[in-house]
Amino acid sequence: MDEEQWCLAVPKREAEQRRRRLLEEGLLDRRYKPRPEGDTVLLPVTEEVAGAVRCEFEAVPERAELPRHELVGGIAIMQDDDPEAARRLLASRPSLETVLFPESPVEGEYRTRRFAVLAGAPTTRTRVTEYGLHFDVDLALAYFSARLSTERQRVLEGMGEGERVLDMFAGVGPFAITLARKAGLVIAADLNPDAVHLLVHNIALNHAENVIPVLADAGHLDRLGFEPFDRIIMNLPMAAPQFLATAVGLCRDGGAIHLYALQEKEGEYLPQIRAVTRGAVTERLVRTYSPGKWHAVYDIVVEKEDC
């Protein structure tokens, strides 16, 4: 029996992106199935948000409660070391190949974690498909977060055609290869040799011929003689702010820097930003990282004192 619920009508071409964004914001009502309606898709929402209307939806059949987990391609990362729950999770999703449990936090200069295999194939490697792009990932060798897929699309939408882009902490290439769809040139740098090896593979996999991989410490990039960049990505949440002065030096006047950082209070890194540029700054919460800590992004317009 159909039930009436608040929903948003979105164009079909935007439906998947809007669905992901609503899911990240906690507004997608997962009790009901999205419903196509002509050239639009009706997405059920949990409350009366702007633009919402009442429509009837088919309820999603109740399923056995699954353990908390994060999906990365064909791998599920559980938050608890529970092999029985892992086997149940593996059986619930035909696309899953492996269930892992992190035995360590993200650590070291290469931002890696150690994992135990709780169920399925004994591997930490998988392929992630994101907005038509494909990324081969090895979670034990290089950090990757599928949760930033919507954020990557947001930055792409705000870009101009032909921009010169620098990704200072590129990892296996999700930001660099996504932004290559509009950029004239992307320099994708990382300190981790295993990450750069996968980055080179992913560049070829996606035919991103305008992405140049660089094995380098971000703090030394200003020594390589690059022309100023239009846009710089700084996605190293635990340490990116310490490289901000280098990024400003590499960015053209009027260019943009997207600084991703973990913080415990709103505006925590504004004083550090103001110490190196006077340009406009917009702060956004990306997601909750842990109790009392948030993953935030500062969108910075660079204004240089000597310009």
Rank of each mutant, 00 (worst) to 15 (best):
P11Q: 05
R19M: 12
L22G: 05
L28W: 01
R31W: 08
R31I: 14
K33A: 15
G38S: 02
V41M: 10
V41C: 07
V45F: 01
R54S: 14
E56L: 09
P61Y: 06
Q79V: 09
D80A: 13
D81W: 03
P83G: 08
P83S: 11
R87S: 05
P94Y: 08
L100N: 11
P102G: 09
P102M: 05
Y110M: 10
T112L: 08
L118M: 04
T129D: 15
Y131F: 13
G132V: 06
L133Y: 04
A140H: 04
A140T: 06
L141E: 15
V155A: 14
G158D: 10
E161M: 07
L166Y: 02
G171S: 07
A183H: 03
G184N: 12
D194Q: 14
V200Q: 13
L205C: 10
N206F: 03
N210G: 14
V211P: 04
P213D: 01
A216I: 05
A218T: 08
G219F: 03
G225N: 00
N235Y: 03
A245S: 15
V248M: 05
C251M: 01
L259M: 05
L262A: 10
E266V: 14
G267R: 00
E268K: 00
P271A: 10
Q272H: 14
I273R: 04
I273Q: 04
A275C: 09
A280D: 15
V281D: 05
T288V: 15
T288C: 09
T288K: 07
W294Q: 10
D299N: 07
D299L: 01
I300G: 14
E305R: 07
D306Q: 10
D306W: 07
C307I: 06
C307Q: 08
